[in-house]
Simulated assay, not measured.
Amino acid sequence: MRRPRLVVVGGGQSGLAAARAGSEHGWEPVILEAGPEPVGSWPAYYDSLRLFSPSEFSGFPGYRFPGPAGHYPTRDEVVGFLRGYAGWLGVDIRTGSRVVDVAAGDGTFTATLADGELVAGDAMVAATGSFANGYLPTIAGSQEFGGQVLHVAAYRSPEVFAGQRVVVVGAGNSAVQVGYELAQVAETSLAVRERIRFMPQVRAGRDVHFWLHTLGVDRLPPSVLSRIVHGTPVLDTGTYRDALACGALDQRRMFTAFTDDGVTWPDGTRERVDAVIFATGYRPHLPYLESLDALDGTGMPRHRRGVSTTHPALGYLGLELQRSLSSNTLRGVHRDAGHVLRSMAVQSRRVSVG
Rank of each mutant, 00 (worst) to 15 (best):
G299V: 08
V178S: 01
D260N: 13
F198K: 06
T128V: 10
Y288G: 02
G205V: 09
P66G: 07
A123C: 06
P38D: 00
A243C: 04
V30Y: 01
G15Q: 06
L89F: 04
A132Y: 05
L319K: 04
A34N: 00
F258L: 02
V229G: 11
T239K: 15
E144T: 14
E56F: 15
R156A: 12
V168F: 06
G268W: 13
E181R: 15
A17N: 01
G268Q: 10
R2Y: 06
V208T: 07
R331I: 12
L82P: 03
A257P: 02
V185K: 07
E24N: 08
L295K: 02
S226D: 15
L292K: 03
L215D: 13
R335W: 15
M300Q: 13
R270T: 09
L319A: 02
P36K: 08
F65H: 03
T269A: 13
F278S: 02
A337L: 10
L49W: 09
A103F: 08
V276F: 02
P284I: 09
T237P: 02
V333M: 12
D336K: 10
H311E: 05
L215I: 10
A204E: 09
V91A: 05
G338Q: 15
H71I: 08
Y240Q: 05
E194C: 12
V149E: 00
P73M: 00
G62Q: 07
L150D: 04
D122W: 11
V30G: 03
P4R: 07
I277F: 05
V30F: 04
H151N: 07
V168W: 04
T112V: 09
L319C: 02
W42I: 01
T298E: 14
P137L: 12
F145M: 09
G332T: 12
V152G: 03
R94H: 05
A275I: 04
A313H: 06
V208Q: 10
T309P: 01
S48R: 14
R3W: 08
M300V: 13
V152P: 00
G70F: 13
R349E: 13
N173D: 11
I228K: 13
D101T: 06
R3S: 05
V91S: 02
L215W: 14
Q13C: 10
